[in-house]
Amino acid sequence: MFTRMLASALFAGVAAGLIAALLQLWFVQPVLLHAELYETGALVHFGSASTVPAHQDVGGIDPLRDGLSVLFAMLVYSGYALILVPLMALAQDRGARIDARNGLIWGLCGFVAVHLAPGFTLAPEVPGVAAADVGARQIWWFATVLAAAAALWLIAFGRNWGTWAAAIVLLLAPHVIGAPEPDVLTGPVPTEIGALFAARAFGVGMAAWVMLGGFAGYFWSREMRAADAVPAE
């Protein structure tokens, strides 16, 4: 059972990670590099008095840096897949149907739990933004992801208003409590770049997660068919 989970998760994670990396390099990386020009002080932004052109040459492909991004995107999405596939298996044991089509919905829920829920209060950070202590933000991030994932599970598989009410509380609580915030806002990056970065990060995350869910559902249902064909395993 574990080997089947591992195989499905790694196939799905590597494929979705590759798609995430390519989308990131195409759509997010130029925005990130543009922001770094302000983060490092190469460009300086003075609000309405700024005369810095909005279009900057941010360079092309950097084989080492971009290669590492591809590698780490595959690792991150393989990690996510190793959580997603076992959850699918547990749901299947309780009567849920798992296939590539349903997987798309699982993927969308994964995006909501891991990107949208924490990002609703702790927005995807463009390099250079002011932020609170990273350890405190990470604790809040994990707690929020866990609460959102549990809430989505309760919404999907709950059978009464009690569980749905608990789900609403779990979804709202992290944002009512609030995330760690910086004392002073010192970000040197123009707000236009920060907003575009957050929007692009969400878009790429959603596309990658929907693909991850679809692939995970596809590979897991294939493994289950193979297991049924060989009952002795």
């Binding site: 990131q24 840096r65 780490f72 995107a73 991150v76 990002g119 991030w141 990060a201």
Partner: peptide
């Protein structure tokens, strides 16, 4: 890959961490 703050790991994963919305 996403959260350990060791310098080498942080630098290698930097762009992915930002693009994935992790606190970096």
């Amino acid at each position: 890959t996403g959260h350990v703050q060791a310098d080498t790991l942080h630098d290698a994963a930097h762009d992915v961490r930002h693009a994935t919305g992790f606190p970096c």
